[in-house]
């Protein structure tokens, strides 16, 4: 008798744990032939709320982790992804990618992780300044993470889009709550498993699966979220996001029609977009 496959149960990723959605709801993901691939958690606003709590809890210590440490952790993520490359390729192929495309996407994702791992202790030097004020003060500007960022991840580019948006956010010391690709959410949860085995502190990345329509409002309205990142071209969604974000003046960053495969879709400016500039003055006379 042929061995029966053990199917994977996809849950969501909050605070370093894999709970089921508190809503108890699910949505089906099928392959191109309509065959059921997985029942995914249909996350609710309460899941989001819980994730924000975890992200906030983790933020300060993640911010104060050394840049070197952050870089090494991200490098470790890349290592773990490399080690599970075939799994990710297979998972992407299940949802319709050719083997070649799937391989490219996974490899690019690994490279992108390494790219940003390398920036962890360098981007500050690009964007900081010592400002030559006309008084007897030492004056300098440095970057600081915005804090907690909610992310509506790319629908099309399920793994590379996810990596390309969240890694520059976290390498800068932010923590985040991500809504994964709606069309292809499975790979995001597998990526959560990679994160969870890579020394990334719990709560730095939290990943939900579910429907944009249900969650986007909450991603933008939560008063304890400092910024929101959006991937897509849906004008109504963007408008709602911008409108609702006004309430606490969330910083809104839109990635409209970004092709994450391109080299120009990675740069230190993707890190800088989720940083505040802080300027410090001190007298320099004794």
């Amino acid at each position: 008798m042929e061995r029966l496959d053990v199917l994977k149960t996809y849950k969501i990723f909050i605070g370093g744990k894999f709970p089921r959605t508190e809503s108890g709801r699910y949505f089906k993901v099928e392959d191109n032939n309509g065959k059921l691939l997985a029942n995914m958690c249909l996350s609710s606003r309460k899941d989001f709320r819980n994730a924000v709590v975890e992200a906030r809890k983790a933020q300060k210590s993640w911010q104060s982790a050394s840049a070197l440490n952050k870089g090494q952790i991200l490098y470790r993520v890349a290592e773990m992804l490399e080690g599970r490359k075939s799994q990710f390729i297979a998972e992407l192929m299940m949802t319709g990618l050719s083997k070649q495309k799937a391989k490219e996407e996974v490899e690019q994702s690994i490279d992108r992780l390494i790219y940003y791992a390398g920036w962890s202790d360098k981007f500050q030097q690009i964007f900081s300044s010592v400002n030559p004020v006309a008084s007897h003060h030492f004056n300098f500007s440095v970057l600081e993470p915005m804090g907690v960022v909610s992310v509506i991840s790319s629908n099309e580019s399920a793994l590379l889009g996810l990596v390309s948006t969240i890694v520059p956010i976290i390498v800068g010391g932010n923590t985040c709550i991500v809504l994964s690709s709606e069309n292809n959410p499975m790979v995001s949860i597998s990526f959560a498993e990679v994160l969870n085995t890579s020394d990334l502190p719990h709560g730095v990345v939290n990943i939900l699966t579910g429907k944009r329509k249900e969650l986007i409002h909450h991603f933008a309205s939560h008063m304890d979220v400092n910024a929101v990142s959006y991937c897509g071209e849906h004008d109504e969604e963007i408008q709602e996001l911008e409108k609702v974000s006004v309430e606490n003046l969330k910083r809104v960053r839109i990635n409209r029609g970004t092709n994450w495969n391109e080299d120009k879709s990675q740069s230190p400016y993707y890190i800088e977009r989720f940083q505040e500039t802080k300027t410090i003055w001190h007298p320099n006379e004794v």
Binding site: H136, H137, P283, N284, E285, V286
Partner: peptide, 8 residues
Amino acid sequence: IDKLGVEE
């Protein structure tokens, strides 16, 4: 004593 403060 902060000198700059005094001077100001």
